[in-house]
Simulated scan of single mutants.
Amino acid sequence: MKQGASHILLPLIAALVLPAGTAVAASPTSPAGRWLAEDIRGGGVIDYLQSVLEIAGDGRISGTGGCNRIMGKARVEGATITLGPLATTRMACSPAVMDQERKFLAALEAVRSWRIDTVRHKLVLLGAKGETLVVLARM
């Protein structure tokens, strides 16, 4: 193949491989959006219980731990993020629901950085040592 021909072939190959209407997205520059927790500290989540984190463009946080509403502030600087202080409503739910909510809130407070897993299209929240704390799917 001649040098420089790749600029013609790559779009052609993408057009043949990708389904019609598929967009190839650039790497996101913000974790803003509405996200559903799929995993908390490697322990999974309860089916049909939604722990949701919504991060607004201005850094406001809202969502639910599964029982109680969450509110607070996110500070995002590049790949660094801190969440909190977080406040919640104070309703009581079943022990299993409260346990997941407690784990979710504790994990959120330990978050120090974020990344988008572009293969799985997930928001990954990481701790101080780079360990995965929470994996979330866009809602």
Rank of each mutant, 00 (worst) to 15 (best):
M1F: 15
M1Q: 13
M1N: 14
M1L: 15
S6E: 15
H7A: 15
H7E: 14
L12C: 07
L12E: 10
A14C: 11
A14T: 04
A15G: 13
A15S: 14
L18M: 13
P19V: 10
A20P: 07
G21S: 08
A23C: 08
A25C: 11
S27F: 12
P28K: 02
A32C: 04
A32K: 02
G33W: 00
R34E: 03
L36H: 06
L36S: 05
E38W: 00
E38K: 00
D39F: 04
D39G: 09
G42H: 02
G42K: 04
G44I: 03
G44R: 01
G44S: 05
V45P: 00
I46E: 05
Y48T: 10
Y48Q: 15
L49K: 02
Q50C: 06
S51M: 05
V52M: 09
L53N: 01
E54D: 10
I55E: 02
A56T: 08
D58H: 03
G59A: 06
S62C: 10
G66M: 10
C67Q: 05
N68I: 11
R75Q: 14
R75E: 15
E77H: 13
E77F: 11
E77P: 13
E77R: 14
G78D: 03
A79L: 14
A79Y: 13
A79C: 10
T80Y: 11
I81Y: 12
G84P: 08
P85S: 12
L86K: 04
A87H: 13
S94C: 07
P95A: 08
P95W: 02
P95I: 02
A96Q: 07
A96S: 11
V97I: 09
V97A: 08
E101R: 05
E101K: 01
R102Y: 09
F104P: 03
A106F: 10
A107R: 01
A107H: 11
L108R: 02
A110F: 05
A110D: 14
V111I: 09
S113M: 08
R115C: 11
R115H: 08
R115D: 08
I116S: 03
K122F: 11
K122Q: 14
L123A: 01
L123W: 00
L123K: 00
L123N: 00
L125I: 02
L126S: 06
A128F: 03
A128D: 10
A128T: 06
G130W: 04
G130C: 07
E131P: 04
E131I: 07
V134R: 00
V134E: 01
V134S: 02
V135D: 00
L136G: 00
A137R: 08
R138F: 01
M139I: 10
M139H: 12
